[in-house]
Amino acid sequence: MKQWQRWAVAAAWMCGASAAMATITVTGSRDFGGEKVGTSCSGGDESQQPVILIKDGGTVSNVVLAAGKAADGIHCEGSCTLKNVTWEDVCEDAATMKGGSGKTMNINGATVNNADDKIFQHNGIGSKVNISNVTVNGTNGKLYRTCGNCSSQGKRTGAITDVTVNGTIKSGLAGVNKNYGDTVSIRKVKWKNFDVNKTKVCVPFNGVIKGNGEAKELPVEWGTTTCNVSKTDITKF
């Protein structure tokens, strides 16, 4: 690195910029030690690249995605684990599961702030996403959504437990495609100002193949195969 480049990096850090200027690819395990990383943010542009790409079997831990630089968050290509990850301000999605049949994404310990749309996006058919020990702050759309209009569709499975919602979640804790056999279990959720008659928890959809319109939202469900959650699983505080 040339001297002027060193000065530029130093100046960026002094202004609070993040460490990464391009996608970080993780193979194996990487502990970031609390490092703040990021690239850019183009709002809801779904063509943005991830800040971190985790290869099959990889783990990332103790990392902060910087506000205004979180792009499309973290992508998981196969099975992966996220431990103690903080999003200062979500750009497009916080993390996306792309791994396919038999693969699992484990999110164990996360703090998420202000996801206008989805926090955790589930695309990989035949895979599972486990979400635990997560705190949600600010204004958000959904915590978890299986893909409503991917180019191919099939069953996806989710599990949500030990979640604290300090902020707001406008359109449902979880959204899943009933017509493709998606299922989600929800346990031990603490939700500020929760109203069982107004607050959406599990929202089923009729998903579609990309190019065939938009997924259709269906009435909220409790205690079904699609939405494995009871009203006692949600505690108001």
Rank of each mutant, 00 (worst) to 15 (best):
G78P: 08
N108C: 11
S79Q: 04
I54K: 12
I107M: 09
W87K: 00
W87M: 02
G78W: 05
I52H: 10
M97T: 05
A71P: 01
T104H: 09
L53D: 12
G78C: 11
D56W: 06
S47K: 08
V90M: 06
I54C: 15
K69T: 09
K83W: 12
G109P: 04
A66N: 04
C80I: 01
G38K: 01
V64F: 01
N62A: 12
L82C: 05
D72S: 14
V51T: 06
S79H: 02
K69S: 11
E46P: 06
N106A: 14
N108A: 12
S47E: 12
E77V: 11
A95K: 00
G102Y: 15
I54P: 04
C80Q: 04
A110I: 12
S79I: 05
K69H: 11
L82H: 07
N84E: 12
S47F: 12
N108K: 14
G99R: 03
V63S: 03
G44C: 06
C80S: 09
L53Y: 08
G78F: 08
E77P: 00
G73Q: 09
T86W: 00
S101P: 07
D89E: 04
Q49I: 05
G68I: 07
A95F: 00
K55V: 13
I52E: 12
T104W: 03
Q49Y: 07
S61D: 15
G99M: 05
G57E: 06
A67K: 06
P50K: 10
N62F: 10
V85F: 03
G102V: 13
K98I: 15
M97R: 02
S79T: 10
T96C: 02
K69I: 06
I74C: 10
C91L: 13
L82T: 09
V63R: 03
V51K: 08
A94I: 13
A71S: 12
C76Q: 03
N62M: 12
T86A: 01
W87H: 02
G102H: 13
T104D: 05
G73L: 06
N108Y: 13
L65C: 04
N108R: 13
T39R: 03
S47H: 11
N62L: 15
C91Y: 08
E88C: 02
K98L: 15
T81M: 04
V51Q: 10
K55S: 15
V60C: 09
G109C: 11
D89G: 01
V85P: 01
M105R: 03
C80A: 13
W87A: 00
D45M: 01
S61I: 10
K103S: 09
T59G: 05
G109Y: 07
C41L: 03
V51R: 04
V64D: 01
Q48I: 04
G73V: 09
D45S: 10
V64Q: 02
D56F: 09
N84R: 04
C76P: 01
D45G: 06
N84S: 09
G43K: 08
